[in-house]
Simulated assay, not measured.
Amino acid sequence: MTTPIIEFKNVTKKYDDTLVLNEMNFTIEKGKFYTLLGPSGCGKTTILQLIAGFTDITSGRILLNGEKIDHLPPNKRPINTVFQDYALFPHLNVFENVAFGLRLKKVSEKVIVKKVEEALAMMNLSGFINRDIQAMSGGQRQRVAIARAIVNEPDIILLDEPLSALDLKLRVAMQNELRQLQRRLGITFIFVTHDQEEALAMSDEIFVLNEGEIQQSGTPIDIYDEPINRFVADFIGESNIIAGNMLSDFKVVFAGKQFDCVDQGLRPNEAIEIVIRPEDLVLTEQHQGKLQVTVTSQLFRGVHYEIFAVDSEGNDWLVHSTKKASVGDTIGLEFNAEDIHVMRLDESEAEFDKRLEAYEVS
């Protein structure tokens, strides 16, 4: 079995009395692109700081290639960081910014020139070698920061929201460049973002964080198609989340109706929430769909219409469709059993027994 490159074992981090990370456990494998995804204050940047050695853990252990690294200062770890503000030296040109880490290691000038030229070529910056940093655009500075990180040939590159300052078009272009660069180099990338689309587009694996805990980890497809709870379903993409009951295996009740689904193994009549993604709902004529809803508003998003509707039980629905609807119309919604994802509620045994008894009486 291959030893993970990074392991967190019951890692807790507190700042004074504020709990930032709560007994966190996870592993990072070599050569993959990982994303830490979550809202501001969820602990994702703190994880990077702990891996880099910029701050100390309160309790637990962090292992690098199977060895504890608590005693290692940042400059002794085979890790480089690309910061949100790039942290470039404004008084140095492009070459000297990229060469800075190599000079600290007292690498020979011949090797420095060779490595810097190679790193800049990877980032399509060969013609900017003597350029003043302050004369470069945001996208170019970001490439310089990445070149400075990869020139040291680290085992791990940490990226703390490095694309957040870029405009949308450049940001999308850089997402692709970063992903291709990681695959070409085979270096482990750990990327921090609060942008769900960015995480889905770039990652081999995503850790979804909230309030200092990992809510769910998995591939982008796993996270999107099989959210484990309401937070993940709501945070990753757009979702219709509707209260319901698991009638039996492969049978679910919501919006006042019974539907076939693909889930099983829950208790009879267990309280659940179901998730159906807006793009999985198909507009039909009123009496042809599994559900009938009334359109309340509509927005044009370019590639699709964003249609808001409500059913007879008062549940709100969001539909993404290339078809246009009219406000006030009653329309049908069609979907497949595979489009219904069932999420368990955090319900105590006492609550369940009480509700089940009421259900059986009725």
Rank of each mutant, 00 (worst) to 15 (best):
P227N: 02
Q134E: 13
L37W: 01
I146Q: 02
V262Q: 13
I214M: 02
F33H: 03
L356A: 00
S312H: 13
L36K: 03
R171S: 03
G244D: 04
P268L: 10
S248D: 14
G289L: 04
Q298K: 13
E161A: 04
A325S: 14
A135G: 11
A87K: 04
I129C: 08
V252M: 02
M343K: 11
D155M: 09
I62W: 05
R148W: 06
R61C: 14
T12C: 10
Q142Y: 05
V327D: 01
E273C: 12
E7R: 12
L72R: 09
Y15W: 10
V82T: 07
T330Q: 14
A135I: 05
L356F: 11
A147V: 07
K76E: 12
M123E: 04
P78W: 02
T12Y: 10
R141T: 02
T3P: 05
G41S: 06
Q175E: 10
D17Y: 11
I242T: 05
K290P: 04
E238P: 00
M343L: 15
T188G: 08
A135F: 01
Y86P: 13
G244M: 06
L283Y: 07
K68H: 12
K323L: 14
S348I: 00
A199H: 11
R230K: 15
E285R: 15
Q84W: 03
L64K: 06
A243P: 11
D155C: 07
K14G: 10
L356H: 06
K105D: 05
E338S: 14
Y359S: 11
F89Y: 15
L200K: 05
V319Q: 02
V282Q: 13
A350D: 12
G43Q: 03
S362Q: 13
G212S: 08
D16Y: 08
L36E: 02
L36T: 00
S59W: 03
K44P: 02
E270F: 06
H91S: 12
E270M: 09
I187S: 04
A309G: 09
T55A: 15
T2M: 14
Q264C: 10
R230H: 14
Q49R: 15
L104W: 07
I276V: 12
A119F: 06
Y224S: 07
A149P: 11
E338Q: 12
S137H: 08
Q182I: 03
S326E: 13
F189N: 02
D311M: 03
T322S: 14
N245I: 14
V116R: 06
M1K: 14
M24A: 07
R171M: 00
F259Q: 01
E29C: 02
D132W: 01
L37S: 03
V113Q: 14
K169G: 08
